[in-house]
């Protein structure tokens, strides 16, 4: 398998595949971050998470067409506007969903799973009715097109670099919010001991709602970033949902660091294997490895030690 390539070629292959893996890693991290926040905080499985992501992608698409027709002069920066709008749209929808649906089901986590699956079907069909069944893509501003030549065998696409930069920023932002702000402190307090947090005066219902909104909002930003590297269809979200769940579970729920580590290992394994094997075999091997490890170590890579 490796014999046909020279050492230099192999280095370049690993670098390029590693970079492709990094882009995959960025999308995974963005999706998993939102899910980890929601799952870690409330133990709620949001099966409609992929659809919240796609909502962000469609918002970005609408923004790009709007800027193209009405504000062509500002087209270069539309993406930043789109990202904020995507966050707000997905976050607002998330808070509505939490208020109407999820908050009645906190005691029944398995039922939440089914209800959010129903929600995801409704959202998918809405997207299909509104935007059509065909996949849509956005026009990239000119400064995002092209690639950087690192050596003569290695080159990296600029949009990939941009997505990675965005991911880093958002991850740091979420980390600061969760571990350095008053809101994050409340979220973690509710997560560790709900009745006690309520007793010291934290409005746990409000914290729940904002956390769910935050998680969905991050999903929206993930969708926004996703448009940079792929096209969007009504069912695109579903393709990623299982991987994302596995990442969150594999990383150990309620641990941001674990989520990032597991997203990194899964995406790198998958993209490196993809070069040598067929895409489907690579995916099967990666997922099997994850499920196998989870069978031996069900609590995931990193665990939070809480006295219950």
């Amino acid at each position: 398998m490796l014999g046909d390539y020279s050492l230099g070629d192999l280095g370049a292959i690993f670098a390029m595949q590693g970079f492709a893996g990094l882009i995959l890693f960025s999308v995974y991290v963005l999706m998993a971050l939102g899910l980890a926040v929601i799952f870690g905080q409330m133990g709620v499985i949001n099966m409609a998470h992929g659809e919240f992501m796609i909502l962000g992608a469609y918002v970005t698409y609408l923004c790009s067409t709007f800027f193209q027709t009405h504000l062509p002069g500002l087209f270069g920066i539309y993406f930043f506007v789109a990202m904020i709008l995507a966050f707000l749209a997905s976050g607002a929808l998330g808070m509505i969903v939490e208020w109407t649906l999820i908050r009645h089901l906190y005691k029944r986590p398995l039922d939440t799973l089914l209800a959010t699956w129903g929600l995801s079907l409704i959202l998918q069909q809405s997207y299909r009715t509104i935007f059509g069944a065909r996949e849509v893509g956005v026009e990239l501003p000119s400064w995002l097109i092209g690639s950087v030549q690192v050596t003569d065998t290695i080159e990296v696409p600029i949009n990939g670099l941009f997505v990675m930069a965005i991911t880093t920023l958002i991850t740091v932002g979420v980390g600061l919010l969760m571990y350095r702000s008053r809101f994050g402190q409340q979220v973690r307090a509710v997560m560790q001991n709900r009745p006690m947090a309520g007793a010291v005066g934290i409005d746990t219902e409000k914290v729940d709602r904002y956390t769910f909104g935050l998680g969905c909002g991050i999903a929206g930003v993930a969708g926004s970033a996703f448009t940079m590297i792929g096209s969007t269809g009504p069912t695109s979200g579903q393709l990623y949902i299982v991987d994302t769940f596995l990442i969150v579970v594999f990383g150990g729920a309620a641990s941001l660091l674990g989520t990032i580590a597991s997203a990194f290992s899964i995406s790198q394994t998958q993209s490196t294997l993809e070069f040598f094997l067929s895409g489907s075999t690579a995916k099967v091997l990666t997922l099997l490895a994850v499920v196998g490890i989870l069978m031996v170590r069900p609590q995931g890579l990193f665990t939070l030690k809480v006295r219950r």
Partner: peptide, 14 residues
Amino acid sequence: WLFGLGALFIAVVL
């Protein structure tokens, strides 16, 4: 149909 099925999931659970 998909709207109906989705609503069914939610209604049955809630």
